[in-house]
Structures are given as structure tokens and as C-alpha cells.
Nucleic acid binder design. Structure first.
Lengths: 192, 192
DNA sequence: GACATAATAGAATATCTATTCCAATACTCT
DNA sequence: AGAGTATTGGAATAGATATTCTATTATGTC
């Protein structure tokens, strides 16, 4: 039933990620994306209702991929979760640039399709829960301050420094791991 | 000689900062800015050669203001410099949002006017020097790793967590100071 | 092989907003 | 007062690009 597809969603998503990572969000035009994939614009709109939806989709893909692994590791080991941030950035430079250098609020403007909203909510919920659970395990009680403390140690601080390298189109040096490790140990001591 | 000005550059700059901080970069249109200031668009273009130039100008104003004080403090005390980040964000919420949530590369697209380029270069140079000098004072030698370490402790880590609150339109709680303080002490011990 | 349909093709359209441009004003200086 | 000019005022223009729309082309089914 119907013609066979030459292209597939992933091609468009991945090319779009590359464009944003390499040339910035402004460089992501539907015409440009089509050219890059050697597809007609119609084939983009055949798959994605709008540019915003395409961007939301790629954003969710990235976050789901990162956060899924990260939370799994976090269930057993905070230290590893923190170091995983660094490895992930090194292994997914394009995705990392999109995730760290842009905020979703600025990537898209209009309303999101319902199904994407759901995915976003799910991600947000899982994040909250995962970090809260780890905080409780670590400190006994998951107060707001303790949760913030945890989030700082395993996410904000590592991502803060990694962002700087990505901004300058550099690969984070290995020794960055020392910094965030020392932070983790200092900030996550028990009995806080 | 000539008509007296109703408006002044600062009005436009400050309103533009507010617009970006409150509604995002995309909401900053020349027509919208004019409306907000109750000025005609001609008066914007009378002062700024282009939207990009206006944005570059407001960006430089913010960075100069922040970095100037910050580096001065850094000359004498790293701990205070780090805490200053936090106070500055609390005291300049709009400017902080622009500085922390956007990167200048994405704010503007075209070439900058020559004079703005100069200002940007000056800022960049002063930053390098200031941090290198402090690193040398702290660790004896300003190796690349030590400079990165310093930068992490007094800038990346604090800004990393502050960014998260700004993203959620929240004021960073006071206890954030504890986190970054503990980080500083752990990461900046001598003899590294 | 004809039909139904999924997908490609890409030209035409619609929209948004930066920028231009030309008057109209109000101020200073002589 | 008149000349010269900086500035306001805002309508008109231009350019970019997201989106629509109407073929056209394959593919599976009967």
C-alpha cells in the first residue's frame, strides 16, 4: 500500500541535530535541512507537522537518550552518574551541544502536539523522582535543599564546566573528571 | 544644534534586556521594542545600525558590568569572587537571564561593527589575564589545567547551578552559597 | 493491468519583521 | 527670524523562510 519511502524520520532528525550543533539554531531551515538530506521539503512536512514539532522531536530524542541511561546509573551509584555526564558529552558531541547550549523554551515557540507534551511530562517526572530517590538514599531525607544539593553535584556542576568547552568547540579534557569528582566528594558527604 | 532627544540609548537597551529576559530572544522585535518604549522605529535605527548591533551592545554592557566588578574582586579574593556571582545574579535578575541563558553566538548572526568587536576582544583578554593571574597566585603556576580548575571553581560551577534557577524563573536560594563554597574549598586547595 | 495510497517533488503562497526612506519637528546658533 | 541639523514619526519596502498545495511517482492488492 503506497510508495516505499526513500527517507526516514531519523535521517531528518539527525541531520537537524548536526545543523544545530555545527551552525546554530538559526541555520536550521526546512529548505536547508531538505537540501542536506537531498529530500524535497514536502517530505519533511509529510513527517513533521511543523518546524517546531521537528525540533521538539529531536530535543525529546536527545533528552530521553541521555536521561534514560543517566537515571539508570543513578539508581545504583551517584559517582558513576556524574562521570557518565562527562563520557556522554564526549561520545555524543552533537547531541551534547544541542542539549547544553540551547534551552527548549527558545528552540520552539508555539504549542506542542499533544503526544510530545506527554513525552516531555514523563521525562520531567522521571527526573524528579530519580533524583529525589537518590537523595533520600544518600541523605536519609529528601528535603528541597538536599535535592538541590544532589542535583548540583551530579548535574549542574559537571554540566556547567562541560558547557564551556562545548561553547568553544573543544572536547573536554580528561582532567575535568577530577574537578567534578572532588566536588562530588565535598558536597555529597553523608549527614548533610 | 538639532532637536532635543526624547529617548536615550539606555532606555532602548534596558527595555530590550527586559524583553529578552521576560519573553525570550525571539520576542525582541524592533517594532515591539519601539512600542514598549513608546518610540517610533526610526528612533531605534537612529541609534543602532541594526538589531544585531543593538543586541551586541546590550550584551557587552551586561558583560562589562559583571566582569568588571568580578575581576576586581578576584584580584584580592577568589572566595568572594565566587560568592559575588551569586549576589550579582540575585541583584540583576534580568541581566543574569540574558547572560546565563543565551550565548552571544546565537544572539547575533551577522558581522559586528568594528568598535563592538574591539570591546569584545578587550573583555576576553581581561578575563584571560585576570583568571590566569589569580591562578598563578593560588597555585604558583598557571598551567592550563590549573586555570581550568580555577575557572571551574569560581565560575562554571556557580553559574551552572544558578542557571538552573533562572531557567525556572526562580530566585536562587541562599543555601546555594554553601554548595559553591564547599566546591571552592575542595577544588582550590593549594599544592594542586 | 487497473486501483488505492503513501510518498516524493518542488513551485507558489503567506507571513513575519528588519530595514529603508522621506516628512515633519523642535532645537541651536547667528 | 531664518538656516542648519538632530531627532522623531511612521508608512512603505524587502527579504527570508515556514507552510501549503497540486502534481507526479512508486508500491502493494485484487
Amino acid at each position: 500500500m503506497g510508495r516505499k519511502a526513500y527517507f526516514n524520520n531519523e535521517e531528518f532528525i539527525n541531520s537537524a541535530i548536526k545543523i544545530i550543533a555545527e551552525e546554530g539554531l538559526g541555520a536550521l531551515t526546512i529548505a536547508g535541512l531538505s537540501t542536506r538530506v537531498t529530500a524535497p521539503v514536502g517530505s519533511v512536512y509529510h513527517r513533521f507537522p511543523s518546524r517546531d514539532a521537528l525540533i521538539a522531536e529531536l530535543w525529546l530524542n536527545i533528552i530521553e537518550s541521555f536521561q534514560g541511561e543517566w537515571l539508570k546509573i543513578l539508581q545504583t551509584d551517584g559517582l558513576k552518574a556524574m562521570l557518565f555526564c562527562m563520557e556522554w558529552v564526549r561520545n555524543h558531541p552533537n547531541e551534547a551541544r544541542v542539549m547544553l547550549l540551547y534551552r527548549i523554551d527558545d528552540l520552539t515557540s508555539g504549542e506542542w502536539p499533544e503526544n510530545l507534551k506527554k513525552r516531555a511530562q514523563k521525562l520531567s517526572g522521571e527526573l524528579q523522582e530519580g533524583v529525589a530517590a537518590f537523595t533520600k538514599k544518600q541523605f536519609g531525607r529528601a528535603t528541597k535543599e538536599n535535592i538541590d544539593r544532589t542535583f548540583y553535584a551530579i548535574h549542574d556542576a559537571p554540566m556547567g564546566i562541560l558547557r564551556r568547552y562545548l561553547q568553544n568547540n573543544q572536547m573536554p579534557p580528561r582532567y575535568v573528571a577530577d574537578f567534578i569528582l572532588e566536588t562530588y566528594e565535598a558536597v555529597m558527604k553523608k549527614t548533610k
